[in-house]
């Protein structure tokens, strides 16, 4: 059976969906399953999960003319099959195709939290502002009003700084 979505590769992933009470089955290749967010990455890699079920049918997957990452040479199929990126540039190269899977995995697709010093000033400033807002929310919840007032001033200053740019 061939993949319903691309029609080029053998269907290796069979997804049962129930939408508004109507159940249906989708037959997809690994590539399309990951790109549509149906196959979640397991810690042992998607390959382990699939290969145990589908044997070496993945080996038949054509990869010769696929786009490769400039830095490490990985293709999207490599990533889908192993559940692992080849290098940090892979995420820039194949990021859009991974978004559905990331959404399923984490529930969100936008980083919140620490940023490294090497990040741009803009990114660092945004992270700083977000951090202040989180602290403010926390201070309000725990009724630390003096602390909250101070944080509000800091947030104003930070936002003003951003507007200058």
């Amino acid at each position: 059976m061939m993949c319903e979505q691309c029609g080029k590769n053998p269907a290796t992933t069979h997804v049962h969906t129930v939408i508004n009470g109507v159940s249906a089955q989708k037959n997809l290749c690994t590539y399309c399953a990951v790109a549509s967010g149906y196959a979640g990455f397991q810690s042992g890699g998607l390959m382990n999960m699939l290969s145990s079920v589908f044997g070496d049918s993945l080996a038949a997957h054509p990869t010769s003319n696929e786009k490769r990452c400039n830095c490490c040479g990985a293709t999207f199929s490599d990533i889908a099959e192993s559940g692992k990126a080849g290098c940090s540039d892979c995420y820039r190269e194949f990021g859009p195709q991974l978004m559905n899977s990331l959404q399923r995995m984490h529930g969100k697709t936008k980083h919140v939290g620490k940023v490294p010093q090497s990040a741009s000033g803009e990114v660092r400033a945004a992270a700083y502002l977000q951090n202040l807002k989180d602290e403010l929310a926390q201070a309000v919840t725990s009724e630390e009003f003096e602390k909250a007032a101070k944080l509000r001033d800091q947030i104003k200053l930070a936002e003003a700084g951003e507007n200058h740019e």
Partner: peptide
């Protein structure tokens, strides 16, 4: 580490890791 090394990071995806389950923080 980040004082002397360029750590793989993306504004959208956060810290970039081999397994996508660790992306973000």
């Amino acid at each position: 580490l980040s004082e002397s090394l360029t750590i793989a990071f993306d504004e959208q995806l956060g810290y970039l890791t081999e397994c996508p389950t660790n992306l973000g923080t």
